[in-house]
């Protein structure tokens, strides 16, 4: 059965149940998997997953096919969208809406964009997320591959070069999309992605693999200055 079809049914069902108040679970606090980074830099986790990212609040968008996603990311939604290194708390204007960049640290190997958007009281379906992180390498690394999974479609850049495109309605599978061999520079390297969700859950995971497909951990991830003041979730 079509996954988006199932996801839509599941979402609809959840809303009905919540509205009816049949389950006490509806009153529980939503799970939290994203926190504010507490240190200037962080190494990837034991499996090499990069857990620290800057995420822009979601932009309404639709279409998961190759052409639709490429058209979407090829259109300038905010200035310098393929080159900007944002800071936590920066704002951009997208189609008249002010959207904020947020530094997050995931408690899991994957970054749950559904949790992120929900915490911002933003749409979770038919949206586009921009995410950025900085990987610092103590030396040049050759024959490295960026390895990602995403729900749903996504396009990835490393140091400005597009390296992965995943299209269609799909779930986050570790090592789903893997780039061709690339070189990680000594010093900072920018990994950027645009992730498009259709309906329901949305998340991604990313790590770097060495020439033998082993996770790379001798790097650090930093996002520059991170504002530590907790802000209230946006009210619609």
């Amino acid at each position: 059965m079509h996954m988006r079809f199932i996801k839509q049914i599941a979402l609809t069902g959840a809303i009905i149940v919540s509205a009816g108040g049949f389950l006490t679970a509806a009153a529980q606090a939503p799970p939290v998997t994203l926190t504010k980074p507490a240190t200037p830099e962080k190494i990837p986790d034991a499996d090499g997953f990069i857990r620290r990212w800057l995420i822009l609040e979601p932009i309404p968008a639709g279409g998961l096919t190759d052409g639709a996603v490429q058209t979407l990311v090829g259109k300038e939604q905010f200035p310098d969208q393929l080159t900007v290194i944002p800071k936590d708390g920066d704002k951009v204007n997208v189609g008249g809406a002010e959207l904020g960049w947020h530094a997050v640290e995931s408690l899991n190997y994957n970054v749950n964009l559904f949790h992120f958007a929900r915490a911002q009281n933003r749409k979770t379906s038919d949206v586009l997320f921009w995410v950025v992180t900085i990987v610092n390498s103590p030396r040049e690394l050759r024959d490295v591959r960026l390895s990602v999974g995403s729900n749903a479609a996504s396009v990835w850049w490393v140091n400005g070069q597009e390296v992965i495109g995943l299209y269609g309605d799909r779930q986050t599978v570790i090592d789903d999309g893997v780039s061709k061999r690339l070189t990680i520079r000594k010093g900072p390297n920018v990994i950027r992605a645009a992730i498009v969700n259709g309906g329901g859950a949305t998340d991604f995971c990313a790590r770097l693999l060495d020439a033998n497909d082993n996770p790379i951990r001798n790097i650090t991830v930093s996002l520059g200055e991170v504002k530590t003041v907790n802000r209230s979730p946006r009210r619609k």
């Binding site: 591959r145 390895s147 992965i164 995943l166 599978v173 090592d175 789903d176 999309g177 893997v178 780039s179 061709k180 061999r181 497909d213």
Partner: peptide, 8 residues
């Protein structure tokens, strides 16, 4: 195969 969706 390199990952689920790419070949090399």
């Amino acid at each position: 195969a390199v990952g689920s969706s790419f070949a090399t």
